[in-house]
Simulated assay, not measured.
Amino acid sequence: MKIVLSPQRREDTLEVIKTGDILTLNGEEFDLSSIGEGDTLPQSAIDSPWFVGPVDRVDGELVLTLLLPNPWNYSQEQAFPVPLENVPDGPVVLPAPLSVQLAEAGQEDMQ
């Protein structure tokens, strides 16, 4: 599975767990196993604000884009995320924000 992340400044959080072709987003399960090779599931067919664009299966791999919420103390890794390739089963590690202390120190440097 390849997950592309689309950052957006917002205060909510996203927890992603992958089990085969099933993604659980903040406790809601999405079974994507019915998407066949070369098929596309349009975003409009997915009842979730977390999917940004369609889900495709290319060369046997699911390719999708998820919204990545960025808090006020977002990191460069969150602002400019790299696609997550060959995502293993289990909790998906998303880019983390800066520590509050580091973010506040950075704001002080700008003043």
Rank of each mutant, 00 (worst) to 15 (best):
D31M: 04
S33M: 07
P42H: 02
E29I: 08
G36Y: 00
S33I: 04
L62S: 05
R10D: 12
S33R: 09
G38F: 01
E29M: 15
F30H: 15
D39Y: 03
I35C: 00
T24N: 08
R57C: 06
E61F: 00
I17N: 12
L25D: 04
L25I: 13
R9W: 13
T24Q: 13
V58L: 10
K18A: 10
R10P: 02
W50N: 12
I22T: 15
T19G: 07
G27Y: 09
P49L: 08
D39N: 07
D47V: 05
T13G: 02
F51G: 01
Q8I: 13
L23G: 08
R9S: 07
S33C: 04
S34M: 14
A45H: 10
D47H: 13
N26G: 07
W50G: 01
K18N: 08
D56I: 00
G20L: 01
G36R: 15
I35Q: 01
D59T: 05
L23Y: 09
F30G: 05
T40I: 15
R57T: 01
D59W: 03
T24Y: 10
L14W: 12
T24C: 10
P49N: 09
P49R: 11
D31W: 02
E28Q: 14
T19H: 14
G20C: 03
D31A: 08
L23T: 09
Q43E: 14
K18T: 10
E37N: 02
T40N: 08
Q8G: 05
E28P: 02
G27A: 05
D39V: 00
G36T: 01
L41E: 10
E61L: 09
D47W: 04
E15D: 14
R10S: 15
G53W: 05
A45K: 12
D39A: 14
E61I: 09
G60M: 13
E15R: 13
G27V: 12
G20A: 06
Q8C: 08
P42S: 06
D47A: 14
T13D: 11
T13F: 09
D21L: 07
E61P: 06
D31Q: 03
L32I: 06
E11S: 15
D56L: 14
F51L: 02
T13V: 13
T24P: 05
L14A: 08
Q8D: 03
E37Q: 15
E28Y: 11
F51V: 00
S33D: 11
I17E: 13
S48Y: 07
N26A: 04
D31G: 07
R10H: 06
L62A: 00
I35D: 03
